[in-house]
Design a protein around this nucleic acid. Structure first.
Lengths: 142, 142
DNA sequence: GTGAATGCAAATTCTTTGCACGAGC
DNA sequence: GCTCGTGCAAAGAATTTGCATTCAC
């Protein structure tokens, strides 16, 4: 169901270059290779990309990531810690539960919360177009 | 019920200086003077503070804001837009609904959402210690 | 070919820091 | 006098940008 990033680019008129293809590949493989809690920042993407083609510059990674974000291919997260982190955007929206000790990130969906958010927005006369929910927690020792 | 920032400093052992007093004053007056949607960034605080005492440096504003944050007097928000924005922390916790066109910020509380968040965290074996919820919406024309 | 994409380095923006001076106890 | 806070300017980190070159179509 989820198209590859390459396909998404085609359908959105985003030109593909060799660099962009490599960056796309790295992003697509992110969770498969590094686990579900992988939400790399630009530095991290740059270093993964560099292993494939060391000539790609970090400026290109920044530009590509921004381009993909604008095309709706990626989402940017501003979790605590200063750097923007990215994740491929697929039709399944989800929120994040972040372990404040280990940094581990768990993705979850809760329909009920989603609906309540819509209701809150409506209550104030708004149409909800987006939202951000991050839970910060500590693992219970049992 | 809400102590002044000065009182909070005293009770938390934060030393008060003339500069900190002025910064505290500006923060306390923030919503009264600029409306509920006022969540100033450091630049904005600096410029308000400068009007009272033009000798205060922006470094002091940064240091004070961080100090107050660590003392639990302020919260820092990383809304979209890159700069950290601050708000006095009073016992009433709330989340934010942000108008993506005007930038206006509406504060709200929804107990039901809060409870569901706790439940979600627990479902994954976590104790919820903090969260961030931001809704982004467009005003309905009616 | 032509306009867009890239690499590089320099520039920006936000934030932090080193250091000497100054204020408060 | 000692400690800590402040101002200033310089340093850092993250991100963007100008420009000449290269690439995709």
């Amino acid at each position: 169901m989820n198209d590859t990033i390459e396909k998404k680019c085609l359908s959105k008129g985003v030109k593909l270059t060799e660099q962009r293809r490599i960056i796309a590949k790295v992003i697509s493989e992110s969770k498969a290779a590094y686990g579900e809690s992988d939400h790399p920042d630009v530095d991290e993407l740059y270093s993964r990309v560099s292993k494939i083609d060391s000539k790609i510059s970090i400026a290109t990674v920044y530009r590509t990531v921004k381009l993909f974000e604008e095309a709706g291919i990626l989402t940017k997260h501003d979790f605590r810690g200063g750097k923007a982190r990215y994740e491929e955007l697929n039709e399944g929206h989800h929120d994040h539960l972040i372990d404040i000790k280990s940094g581990e990130i768990i993705e979850f969906v809760d329909e009920e919360i989603e609906n309540l958010q819509k209701k809150v927005a409506e209550k104030y006369g708004y149409e909800l177009v987006d939202h951000k929910l991050e839970l910060y927690g500590i693992k219970k020792n049992k």
